[in-house]
Amino acid sequence: MKNNFFKNLLLILVFIFLFLPIIVLIIYSFNSSQMNILFEGFTLKWYKELFNNTDLIESFINTFLVAISSTAISTIIGTISAYGLYKYDFPFKKIINGLIYIPIVIPEIVLGISLLSVYTLMKLELSLMTIILSHIAFSIPFVIVSVRTTLTKETITYEEAARDLGASNYRVFKDIVLPTIMPGVISGATLAFTLSLDDVVISYFTAGPGSNTLPLYIYSMIKTGITPDVNALTSIILIITFIILLSLVIIQSRKIRKEAI
């Protein structure tokens, strides 16, 4: 009994530690005070103000633009690379396989600086485009690694079976390979999306004038103090994320129930 009490206490403490900041954030988005220190009264004015803050809205749109386009491109390139690295033999394959991990393990700040110097060297003007390029660059290895786990010996056999039945290379990839590696592709894309969405360091180095992303915008506010309309925006993002997650869980559990029957 006593043991159980401590177990539950520990669990509650951990959950408080995890979720208290998020709850505080949501509560403060309804705080009538300008400062994030004391709760002075309930208000919805920050939600109204949010839509008048064009800088904030623009950086929000930029963030999603970067995340969606870099995810799409890096998922395509990463998936094809993982498949190619798995299927074909060529010189230096082992070395290339090892090199893939470098962008994952090197500090973001190093990657940020090196990308910046590459752009300067190539005389590329810093803009939203350079942020997208940088995000593609650091996302590809994550996609490759995640897709690679789903490519097994069986994939080769399935491919052979499909070719034996007369399927063209395109149909083999579309009908046979893609469905089997789909879980890896989805998890790779999700990883790329989240990494891009909250990236500060690399974006900081590669962003040009007028190409602010939301994390950069918030980061720059630290000096002047974060206004509660940011709380309002993040609360909205949180709720959207929560709804998406919840529906995924519901779909998943329905699927499992269906399979059980």
Binding site: E154, T157, Y158, E160, A161, A162, L165, G166, A167, T180
Partner: peptide
């Protein structure tokens, strides 16, 4: 060919597996 471990396409039904070649 009938492969050693059959190599049936796991995401397709029996019917889709059987008709795969003709559909191609």
């Amino acid at each position: 060919t009938i492969f050693q471990n059959f190599a049936l396409f796991p995401k397709m039904t029996v019917k889709d597996n059987i008709t795969f070649g003709l559909r191609m």
